[in-house]
Amino acid sequence: MKPLTVALVAPSQPLAIFRARSLTVPGGTGYFGILPGREPLITTLGLGLIHIVEEGGKDHWFAVTGGFFELIEDMATVLADALIPGETVEHPAHLRGKPLYIPQEFASEVQKVDLARAMLWRKLHPEPANQS
């Protein structure tokens, strides 16, 4: 099956393009998965993580604070308010060891970016299970 072309666009950040076999995005009303051949879709994005599985099987993770998503004829475009790539993410020091919950509608852009960074970092560096 023809793979998805995924373009990640955010202001003042470099464009990222992938050939993907699947994609998961945080929609405004919840996460949804996209496979090639899906019907066209335009939606808002909420704060959360984007998971891209490349053609060769390699995983890519990004965090977004919000934005828009468009899928038309296997061309997926993420228009992110702020995009944080998994490769360079660092955990915000002030959120270490704290529960990650701030109601999105009340969070400022700075809080949202910190929250997204912390969510992504914790996804990529899960704490080892308690041995006792």
Binding site: G28, E39, P40, L41, I42, T43, T44, F68, I72, E73
Partner: peptide, 18 residues
């Protein structure tokens, strides 16, 4: 497009946010 576009939550809401 050959298929109709699905909007979530709605086209008006997306345009208002855009």
């Amino acid at each position: 497009t050959t298929h109709s576009i699905q909007f979530d939550p709605s086209a008006e809401a997306i345009l208002t946010a855009l």
